[in-house]
Amino acid sequence: MKKMKLSTIYLFIVFVILYAPIFYLMFFSFNSGGKMYHFEQFTLDWYRELFHDTRLLIIVLNTVIIALLSSVISTILGVFGAIAIWYVRKNYQKSLLLSFNNVLIVSPDVIIGASFLIMFTVVGIKLGFTSVLLSHIAFSVPIVVIMVLPKLQEMSSSLIDAAQDLGAGRREILTKVILPYITPGIFAGFFMALTYSLDDFAVTFFVTGNGFSTLSVEIYSLARRGISLNINALSTLLFLFTIILVIGYYFIVTKRNGRAVGLGARK
């Protein structure tokens, strides 16, 4: 019993340490004093200012468009990539492909950003919307692959045999058996790609050009110029948005998992 309590206290402390700075920041976004200490009065001025800043609103829009486009495209690419890896028969080829995929996930964003910058300059792609979109797609694809692949591996190969046995051709096997089966993985991959794209800073910072910016880059440059509680307001909104995404993702996953659990009981 005592052990239980200790672990609960430990957990509580960890969460406090993790969340305290965020709540501190959110708290002062309502401060009329304009400083991060000494709370004077409750105000929504910073938020009002935020919503009158058309430049900032365009940046928000850019960020969302980039995130949605890149995650949709990378989900499509990633799903087919995962299926391709899954189809590879030889084990060493499979693990080689998978390693190539995983290296991209673990390698530092700075390196990926810098190398993309070099590539875009060499190829002659103007830095801006296209370059940011392309690089976001590039770092999202491996994430989708790694989210979808376990679902494929969990699928019994006799399902494919059965579909073939019942007259299904290659295309029907894909659309009527494989894709419906891995749908939870596809959703998970999509949401992962979306969040990665939304909060990416390092890669975007390298490949973005004049006149184009995303939220995280903008917050960074605002913070460099000097502290304004604008940033707090913006960060608060961003945080809330992320929370909503996470909750939405959770609901989709648990709903789907209800099915998956039933599957597990099959044997």
């Binding site: 006799s158 059965a162 019942l166 299904a168 089966y181 749908t183 099959r266």
Partner: peptide, 19 residues
């Protein structure tokens, strides 16, 4: 190919489509 043959199979793990 299998999908063009007039035979059908009952698989060991039944291979029913869970979705």
């Amino acid at each position: 190919p299998a999908n063009k043959r007039q035979v059908n199979t009952v698989f060991q793990d039944y291979a029913l489509f869970p979705h």
